[in-house]
Design a protein around this nucleic acid. Structure first.
Lengths: 102, 102
DNA sequence: TGACTCCATGTCGGATATGACATATATTGA
DNA sequence: TCAATATATGTCATATCCGACATGGAGTCA
């Protein structure tokens, strides 16, 4: 079985359990997941604070509701690029992002 | 002319001049570029501190010398994901990344 | 109940990023 | 100077990510 594929399947555990313990993630893989999850949480928070539906945010981002849902769920098919660009579109700055990661 | 293509061409100006002034970048596009450039600088710094050639780093990352060069040059075809994963592979943590962005 | 809104999840064709390779251009040291 | 090493740049086939769409489930209100 393809490693990438396997990871994608296993990764579904991300939001269920806690994290890297029962998956055999290397430290840097774990850190990568941490970063993505931190940002996806912040995205959802920001969206809710602004009282937007996923559909409305999708329009703002010129994306789709399903992709927004996947972003917020930490779906492995969502890139850091997309998360970061979305947060920036919601008004975050480079420094804000830094704070979100800290 | 395709917008993406145009941006890629214009983006060559990144390392020549300074930044977003003479390109017509929106604030969030500019911020996105800022983030990428910040990380690529840090990647090069880290690599040099560790006394690695681009070729050696490429091996470490299971990538190629040319891609490392592009990462460090802020090439538009390089994703944030790759930059972040590279920094993590060099020992950075989530918090370290946050500091790099601040 | 049924109509409505919101969010989750699967899939797909097209778009973009990837490693690899070739090759050009520094940079270094004898 | 020459050659060895390091870095830059262009291209390509393939891998991965994207928006879009369909559909299902959960909650709300009448």
């Amino acid at each position: 079985m393809n490693t990438t594929k396997r990871k994608r399947l296993e990764a579904k555990g991300w939001k269920v359990g806690n994290a890297s313990d029962f998956l055999n993630l290397s430290p840097e893989e774990a850190a990568y997941v941490e970063v993505k999850l931190a940002l996806s949480k912040r995205l959802q928070e920001t969206r809710r604070v602004k009282n937007l539906s996923q559909e409305q945010l999708a329009q703002l981002l010129k994306s789709s509701q399903s992709r927004v849902a996947k972003m917020e769920a930490g779906d492995p098919t969502v890139s850091l690029d997309l998360l970061v660009r979305s947060l920036l579109a919601l008004g975050a700055s480079r420094k804000t992002l830094a704070r979100m990661l800290a």
